[in-house]
Design a protein around this nucleic acid. Sequence first.
DNA 1: ATGGTCGCGTAGCGA
Length: 269
Amino acid sequence: MKIATFNINGIKARLPRLLEWLAETRPSVACLQEIKSQDETFPGNEIEALGYHVLTHGQKAFNGVAVLTDGKAGFEPPKEIQRGLGIEGPKEGEGEQARYLEVDATGPDGTVRVACLYLPNGNPHPGPKFNYKLAWMAALRTRMAAIWAEEVPAVVLGDFNVIPEDDDVFSVRAMANDALMQPESRGAYARLLGDGWTDAVRTLNPRGGVWTYWDYQAGAWQRDHGFRIDHILLSPECADRMRAVGVDKAHRGREKASDHAPVWLELSL
DNA sequence: ATGGTCGCGTAGCGA
């Protein structure tokens, strides 16, 4: 089975590109971030027409995540396990932002726990938004420990908004003050790996230089000024079954593209 | 140091 993550940066602007990507690459499970839509107005019908089941966790205008499963390939609708991590947004009285959706994905070859996440950006640093990011990462670590304890095949993936190492960014100097690569952000990410989770995308090149995001500004795509912030973490039950991993880089170069490229993993399960 | 570009929703915030 193939499990993918794609920060689409707005479903209203991205629907044609999303449908195209689904049809061309046909992931068994697709995790979407930044749908920027409420559940009621998410265009599920057009995605279902391709044979996908759709589960959304959205909010108005910002954030929002979704999980799709390939009904045509014999996958059941995503079975919801948990939405949200119970962390209040950084603004007073704002409530919780829509950033986490955990499901069981069951297909012909078995069940995988899939946690789709959109981690807070955390800029500007320092400040309340950065503190919110760190609190969110602490809650994520707690939740991942609970998943670990279930000893099920599990994949935790999405836009982590963390550049893990210096060789995961086009220029350390250009990004030095960004929340995405502060020592606290990196430390929290490193603790997840220290807990035993495998960074699947890192295996593409252990020396770095793999990008999943290119800014819209300053000709970043044309200059290949990118960085790696979309990650796929595997429980031990999945790490042994990893068969292939990749970045659909060409999709970043298309008309009206997202600023992220899709990232995927093939499991022998 | 600044400005550079998008999306949502239709001003200004978030990235």
